[in-house]
Design a protein around this nucleic acid. Structure first.
Lengths: 172, 172
DNA sequence: CGAAGATTGATCCATCTGGATGTATCTGGC
DNA sequence: GCCAGATACATCCAGATGGATCAATCTTCG
């Protein structure tokens, strides 16, 4: 059986929407992560963090966490790596000594511009199969999904409710 | 500045398509991965692997790799974990002793049915903001992206071409 | 003011990840 | 049939990941 036919079958199951989105994103991430890692020697989350800091000078780690849904320690590490390389600087907030305000440096802005340009090329590749109207439609619908209240919290997959469930497969 | 306003700003940049898709998927993955990990004690790739084996009895690891774009060793590990738990069995192919044909067991089918049901609920949550027509449009457009020739290979982010580029940020 | 609790970000540690390598097997050219 | 190279899958290992914990600071309220 050909790969194409198997993919068609998967995209005909009841889980086709999840499967398709997974497929696209796994594929794209493999390309992107490898590239950022190899060329810039940093995890891909470090550059998202740099992007956020560039857009919102003085942003705090906890705010970045809400823009890119990642665990808190991921942001900590990314900030510390970017700081060590002189791409950002961290200033303790004058109003709250717990907070660190993050600012991009000139060197950081230079690197970021380069990555943004490459990412734009990548975006063009990825969305090449869609014409302009289709891209806008896709974007509009994806935006609706993103704005949905259950993207980040789930009733169906609530780990708290699941704790009562038996881990029946872990017996072997 | 509110989180919502910052997200709006990000989704107005030239990279809005990539950013939006990333946002949706990072958010959803966090929910899904945590749940599968916690309730079933296995990485989420293990259940994709189980799903593929269930759909295509006798499938080989290299074929699964094409259905779910992951490195080869990820599939190896998943298969070995599923085997250890008695959810699949592996048979050496009669025509090629290098290959292992993978088959789901009754126990595996039982667990899979449960996860599929939960995943379907999750899918409903995620796509709740779209009506039926919108979902079909979204699916159709995403399918076009998936079928594009540059999902898995990139010119813009080709690590080979990048090797010549200086890792200028790694100097610190 | 002082103590309890909340919040921010850093760090710890067990686990996961993926590129590289290893082992077994198969294929093609001679 | 034999050897070089290709292929399938397993394993290794350095580094990434994320839940849990920790230290520092702030807030609330008596």
């Amino acid at each position: 059986m050909q790969t194409r036919d198997m993919l068609d079958s998967i995209f005909e199951t009841e889980l086709r929407h999840l499967m398709l989105v997974s497929y696209v994103v796994l594929g794209n991430n493999a390309v992107t992560n490898r590239y950022i890692e190899k060329v810039y020697g940093m995890p891909v989350h470090a550059w998202s963090t740099l992007f956020a800091i560039s857009m919102f000078p003085g942003i705090r780690a906890k705010e970045i966490k809400q823009l890119f849904p990642r665990p808190q320690n991921t942001i900590s590490r990314a900030a510390s790596l970017l700081d060590a390389r002189g791409l950002i600087r961290q200033e303790t907030s004058p109003t709250d000594a717990r907070e660190k305000r993050l600012y991009i440096t000139d060197k950081g802005a230079e690197i970021l511009a380069e990555i943004r340009a490459t990412s734009l090329e990548r975006q063009e590749e990825l969305f090449a199969p869609l014409d302009e109207a289709e891209r806008e439609t896709f974007f509009r619908l994806a935006r609706k999904i993103a704005d949905g209240p259950q993207l980040l919290t789930s009733r169906a997959m609530d780990p708290a409710g699941a704790e009562t469930r038996e881990r029946r497969d872990a017996s072997a």
